[in-house]
Simulated assay, not measured.
Amino acid sequence: MKAELTAAESGILANYRFVVSEPETDIQIDFRPFTDASAMGTYLERFNEGLKAPDAKTAASVFIKRHAFLAVLYLYSMTAFNKKLDVSPENIILADAIKDGLWLPGFYLKNKSTDVCPSGQREEWRKEAVRHLFADNLFPVMDAISKSAKISKLILWENVAVYIFWLYEKILIQTEDHEVKMRAEDDFSFLIKSAPGKLFGRYHNNPIAKYYSEPVYQEEADSYIRIRKTCCYSYLLKEKGGYCKTCPRTCGIN
């Protein structure tokens, strides 16, 4: 069954960079070229200038961090609303935006019609929803950006994974809506434990499962933190000026 997002649902997703109204022409960026390695190289040069990144690898890593919010808003809709958005590259317009000196693009969907989860068929519907997000969008973008910037996909996948962990652990599983909470726990377990690699692209094994681990206590931060397995290079940006508190470089891992 097809259905539009409600105004309330769109408003919630707007917190995660979902753009409700079509952006002005001068800030629209066609998303389709991001799945092509040569075109992505051209875009990275452009983004590099705005980010003031020292090299293509750093720009690529930051780009995927921004792109990870597409996964966040998509999975929020899947879990909280039982609605599957159309995130085919040809359906997306990136809304170019600089906020407080940071490049924080938004995502506008030309077709906002969603596939609603059929009653009693959620497991199969969820498999297709996960496949659509990763195999149809994130994997082609990562493949293009990895080739153009010569950056490991391990870094790119972890950049996406940490936002997925945050979404479920800090937002959806913490909700007071019991039904959403139960779905969130089940969906999160599926994403990090059960989902087969083929749902994520050309993989035999789940590419985000390896990044999930129990948080460990860090005395300096006086909190429990999940240390990354790869460095995202953000410390090389002038705007950052230091390492992330989850960076393996600060813990003697890299």
Rank of each mutant, 00 (worst) to 15 (best):
D86L: 00
K65H: 05
F81R: 09
A60T: 10
M78G: 01
N82L: 07
L85H: 07
L73G: 00
P54C: 11
F63D: 06
P54K: 07
L73E: 10
F63S: 08
Y74K: 07
G50A: 02
H67T: 06
K84C: 06
S77D: 07
F81M: 05
L75H: 02
V87Q: 09
V72E: 04
K65L: 00
V62P: 09
T79C: 05
F69H: 04
K52F: 00
L85Y: 03
A80D: 11
D55W: 03
S77E: 08
T58A: 13
S61F: 02
R46W: 13
V87D: 10
K83E: 09
A56I: 10
R46L: 14
A53N: 09
S61N: 11
S88Y: 03
L85S: 06
I64C: 03
P54T: 10
F63M: 11
F69K: 03
T58C: 15
K65I: 01
E49A: 12
S77Q: 07
L85K: 07
K52M: 08
F63T: 07
E49W: 04
I64Q: 07
R46E: 15
R46Q: 14
K52A: 12
L75W: 01
A59Y: 12
K65S: 02
F63W: 06
F69E: 10
A71K: 04
A56W: 08
Y76W: 05
N82D: 13
N48D: 13
D86A: 00
R46T: 15
F69Y: 12
H67Y: 06
Y74R: 07
K84S: 04
L51E: 10
V62H: 05
E49C: 08
V62T: 09
A53P: 01
G50T: 09
R46V: 13
R46D: 15
V62S: 08
A59H: 12
A71L: 01
Y76R: 08
L70E: 11
K57C: 14
A80F: 00
K83F: 09
K52H: 12
V87C: 11
K65V: 01
A71R: 02
L75F: 01
L73T: 02
L73V: 00
R66E: 10
A80Q: 11
N48Q: 15
A59K: 14
V87G: 03
S88H: 12
P54H: 12
K52E: 13
L51T: 04
A60M: 09
M78Y: 06
F63G: 02
N82C: 08
K57R: 15
K52S: 14
K52P: 15
F63L: 13
P89R: 01
A71M: 04
N82Q: 13
L85A: 02
Y74E: 13
A68S: 14
